[in-house]
Design a protein around this nucleic acid. Structure first.
Lengths: 138, 138
DNA sequence: ATCCTACAATGGACGAAGTCCAAGTCAAGA
DNA sequence: TCTTGACTTGGACTTCGTCCATTGTAGGAT
């Protein structure tokens, strides 16, 4: 994780202060931030960073496979820096909290050929939903 | 399926021409329309129907469990009238086409208790992704 | 160390998707 | 048929994201 900046440089990324800050914000906390949250945290260190730059940088990180984009709720997309360990997501139906989870087996295996309709199926994104402990008692 | 209007009436729905048209548009074609597409099709029969009415009606149908809301791509939500037969979705990464699919087993069973973090997990939404036959050859 | 230039950042306008609300309309029970 | 509360309308507004012309700069070349 800590060598994200190394990997990016090795891939020919031009290293700007803006990109560095965005990458650091993402890897600093293992939570699932929205683009605006990333922008807010980045702006604490680099006050004049533009929203468009954050969007661009996030898009590049996603394209490079360093970050996973989630749209669990039809609202703002969230960015998950935990891209190198395959996992799924558990979302609270009350407060929207998100946890990374690792189900057993390969979710793809549950889809028989007869249900693939000729698609070259390459991945399965699973969103488990339910009330988190805090919301259950509240 | 055809008795959706019956069920709605039985639940105390006030039956207006707008609601009838929206319900008919959804059940008429077994595809996954966006709210704007539903509005466009409804407007063919009822030209002055408001967008807000379509949104309201779709929201009510979802709340009643008659329709399932999908946000597979972070763009416009889609509405799936096939709510009474449990299924998942297969989405083309090229063109966005969506098919209903039925994996084997219960996706929830793949999430061990140790991975539930105290959540009362109640459902699992699975999105399989891959290229459809048309996009694969193009 | 300095220069060049292609790549990156800026910021403000724009667009898509969806929500809100005050005023008008109407379904259906009395 | 009358009444009334639920429903619809349409336009303003919000949120999330994209676009683009201009300005800035990282990093290789000299």
């Amino acid at each position: 994780m800590g060598d994200l900046l190394e990997r990016l440089r090795a891939r020919g990324w031009r290293m700007t202060s803006q990109r560095r800050v965005v990458a650091e914000v993402l890897t600093g906390e293992h939570v699932h931030l929205t683009a605006d949250e990333v922008h807010a945290r980045a702006a604490e260190r680099l006050p004049e960073i533009a929203r468009a730059t954050v969007y661009n940088t996030l898009g590049e990180l996603v394209a490079l496979g360093e970050v996973v984009e989630l749209s669990t709720d039809g609202r703002a997309k969230r960015y998950d820096p935990n891209a190198h360990r395959s996992h799924q997501h558990l979302v609270c139906t009350g407060c929207g909290a998100i946890r990374d989870v690792r189900p057993t087996g390969d979710p793809l295996a549950a889809l028989p050929d007869a249900e693939r309709y000729g698609f070259a199926v390459s991945k399965a994104d699973v969103t488990y939903r339910g009330l988190c402990p805090d919301c259950a008692t509240a």
